[in-house]
């Protein structure tokens, strides 16, 4: 593992070693190493096709890795079924957000807490999400497909938060959203990190906003990690930006 972000003293929540994964015979990810300290925000950036979404899918078990190791708080996740990962504290908000359009806003949120034994706290978490996202509270009984893009992102994020995850995997949270909404969501992630110690791994094409919110930046290209460093250092590295990030 190369350089780390500033919060490594808290210990690593997510550790990835030599991860190889892909679709069919050809791997998309080649020997990916990654470490995300607890209570920090890591942003995986890179061009389209760099393997960012594939990385998240492999982490959350939607895609079975060919080789390598994924540790969540030191526990090996090999062979753990997808539906069990949420019980280990991992929440994955997939690309396209995964709001279930045929269910109401309230049903989507309840679904996020159904696996929990502590029903009372699941209810409290749902109330907190409604406080956090005002527009959702006003549209509880609306169907998912009646929501705007920004509301859907709020709902997908809120639904993950109802499970009170330790690690939040976010795939392209800024996709298709107005800059103002993106800024709100990024600010919220920071706030959650500070108030609850939430750890976030987000994958973004919107490099500028991702690196502005993250503690640690990971640059991927063609299925490999080419650089991992504190986010502000990546922001200031002109050569790197030109070579891999295109701004």
């Amino acid at each position: 593992m190369s350089e780390q972000g500033g919060r490594s003293d808290a210990g690593e929540l997510l550790t990835v070693r030599g991860l190889v994964a892909g679709y069919g015979a050809a791997p998309v990810l080649h020997e990916v190493d990654l470490a995300v300290p607890a209570g920090s925000i890591a942003a995986v950036v890179g061009a389209n096709g760099a393997g960012k979404s594939t990385l998240l899918r492999a982490l959350s078990g939607m895609l079975r890795p060919v080789a390598g190791q994924i540790l969540l708080a030191g526990e090996d996740l090999r062979g753990v079924p997808v539906e069990q990962l949420v019980r280990r504290g991992m929440a994955h908000v997939p690309e396209g957000r995964g709001v279930i359009g045929e269910l109401t806003v309230d049903e989507n949120l309840r679904l996020g807490g159904l696996w929990r034994r502590d029903r009372a706290d699941a209810g409290r978490a749902r109330d907190e999400v409604y406080q956090l996202f005002e527009p959702l509270a006003r549209r509880r009984q609306h169907l998912g497909h009646q929501l705007s893009g920004g509301e859907r992102q709020m709902l997908a994020l809120g639904r993950a938060l109802v499970g009170r995850p330790r690690l939040l995997l976010l795939d392209e949270p800024s996709l298709g959203l107005a800059p103002r909404v993106v800024a709100q969501i990024m600010a919220l992630l920071r706030q959650l990190r500070d108030s609850t110690g939430l750890t976030v791994l987000l994958v973004e094409q919107n490099v500028r906003s991702a690196l502005s919110v993250a503690d640690q930046g990971v640059v991927m290209a063609l299925g490999r990690v080419v650089r991992a460093a504190p986010a502000e250092r990546l922001r200031d590295d002109v050569d790197l930006r030109h070579a891999y990030l295109g701004f």
Partner: peptide, 24 residues
């Protein structure tokens, strides 16, 4: 009922439901 909600979710969106801990 919660199990009814799970059944509907699993039918509409199996992948997302698994991510939310539903035994599809």
């Amino acid at each position: 009922t919660p199990v009814g909600l799970r059944m509907r979710a699993a039918a509409f969106a199996p992948e997302v439901s698994r991510l939310l801990g539903v035994n599809v």
